[in-house]
Amino acid sequence: MVPVENYLALSGILFAIGVYGVLARRNAILVLMSIELMLNAVALNFVAFAVFMDPEQITGAVVAVFVITVAAAEVGLALAIVIRYFRMRATSNIDEAAALKW
């Protein structure tokens, strides 16, 4: 069986990659994808901890289900915003989304 440290390290690396994506990318959809990576890293972390350290082995999975659900909702909403923004400004570059009103 693969030890828990491996999962934690993997999840940490994944999270850091997501952080890099969020910080470095300019395209809104790419930022969204990076956020997905971070969320998945967290869910993986939860499940790994739960499976190895929770005698019930369940709670982590349930939390992961919630994470996935909320992530789906978040993606749907965020993409709606991106598309809406794109239709108004013909760009999905977040650096240019600086105007507070128009």
Partner: peptide, 18 residues
């Protein structure tokens, strides 16, 4: 005044309009 994206002429950052 933002350019009307429906005109299909705007080219911001290499993106086409819809």
């Amino acid at each position: 005044v933002w350019p009307d994206t429906r005109e299909g002429t705007l080219d911001v950052g290499g993106f086409e309009t819809v």
